[in-house]
Simulated assay, not measured.
Amino acid sequence: MAHLLPGISAARIPTDRLAVNVLQLDGRAGIPVVLVHGNVSSGLFWQQLMLDLPEQYRPIAIDLRGFGDTDPEPVDATRGVADYADDVRATLAALQIEQAHLVGWSLGGGVVLQCLIDAPSTFASVTLVNPVSPFGFGGTSGPDGTPVEPVGLGSGGGTANPGFIAQLAAGDRSADSPLSPRNVLLAHYVKPPFVPDGLDTLVESMLSTRLGEDHYPGDFTVTDVWPGVLAGGRGVLNTISPNNLRLDDLSALAVKPPILWVRGGDDVIVSDTSLYDFARLGELGVVPGWPGPQAYPVQPMVSQTRAVLEEYAAAGGAYREVEIAGTGHSPFLEKPAEFLAALTATLDSAG
Rank of each mutant, 00 (worst) to 15 (best):
G264R: 00
L250E: 06
D267Y: 01
A254M: 13
D249M: 15
P181V: 03
S274K: 00
A254D: 15
I269F: 06
D266C: 11
L186D: 02
P192N: 07
L253G: 00
W261F: 08
P181F: 08
P288F: 03
H188Y: 15
D266L: 07
Y276A: 13
Y216T: 01
V270K: 03
D277W: 04
M206R: 07
S271R: 01
L237F: 11
E283G: 06
V184S: 05
K191G: 09
L186V: 02
T221L: 14
G264S: 05
L245C: 04
A252I: 11
L281H: 06
V203L: 10
S205P: 04
W290L: 07
W226D: 07
S271Y: 05
L199D: 00
E213M: 08
L185I: 11
G292Q: 11
L207W: 11
T201G: 09
M206T: 08
E213S: 14
L245F: 03
V262N: 03
D197F: 15
Q299K: 07
N243C: 13
E283F: 11
D248P: 00
G285E: 02
V262I: 03
D248S: 04
L284I: 06
V225K: 14
L211G: 04
A187L: 12
G235K: 00
L281E: 06
D249R: 14
Y296H: 04
D272P: 01
D248M: 00
A187K: 08
